[in-house]
Amino acid sequence: MSAGIDVPELRVHDVTVRFAGLTALDGVSFTVAPGSIHALVGPNGAGKSTTFNVLSGVYRVASGSVRFGDAELTALAPHRIAALGIARTFQNIVLTRGTVADNLMLGRHTLTRAGFLTSALRLPHVRGEQRAHRERVREIADFTGLGARFDTPVSLLSYGERKRVELARALCMEPKLLLLDEPVAGLNTAERAAMARTVASVRDALGLSVLIVEHDMGLVMRMSDEVTVLDFGRRISGGTPQQVQRDPAVIAAYLGGATDAPVGEETR
């Protein structure tokens, strides 16, 4: 994998999202520095998934702006945002029928050109494109530990492997910003550690930014450079893991009152 891609900053500024009277996000602002792992945490219903859906263009904002470099994401449809190099995974795994390879090749959609006519005729340049991208996709499969499963139908994979297919498919988009929605939810301890290692090595190898939503506080605190805490749609805290762990507002949000116990000892 080659490093040195030009990764812009992601600036979320004063974003508000309402669903028929319910304010899901209320003036949320944070910035994901280029090449950093940034965690978005908060209790259930805090607005983490809503934030993801805004960033990937699935939800529209009532007000506020999201800038990725020069692009204003709030004005773009999901497929245009994908083309900018923003990839995401889903909390509840969403894969397509077919093999691991089929799913990963879908990740190359924005990077390939073959249309209906040229694909139907299997013109030489379509075959060449397919071959080149399949090679790269195989590399990514190996990198994420799916090499042996490359031609296996995803319906035959274990839950942990499917989670990894989601990650690999996002990586196949050669993203500049990777949005991971609960990448270790439902995984056992060994799988969690492995997934964390993969994410860290992906960042190190590719130099991309990672925005991660996760409930496993131990993992979040260990791997992220910066943490933003949401509660009831508002940003209540932010900073390095150490700063956030000591913030009384965070402790109150998680434990429902003022205590001295630091956040981060959660085990699941």
């Binding site: 990937s56 263009g57 699935v58 449809a77 999901p78 497929h79 945002i81 994908a82 083309a83 990839a87 995401r88 889903f90 969403v94 894969l95 397509t96 029928r97 077919g98 089929d102 090749m105 879908l106 990740g107 190359r108 959609h109 924005t110 390939t112 073959a114 249309g115 209906f116 694909s119 139907a120 299997r122 379509v126 397919q130 498919r169 988009m173």
Partner: peptide, 23 residues
């Protein structure tokens, strides 16, 4: 080919397909 994969993704989840860059 590429169109078949995109259509299959669209069938299984429109959101996921769009996020992968499928119009």
């Amino acid at each position: 080919g590429r169109p078949g994969r995109a259509l299959g993704a669209l069938r299984d989840s429109e959101t996921a397909a769009a996020v992968m860059g499928v119009h």
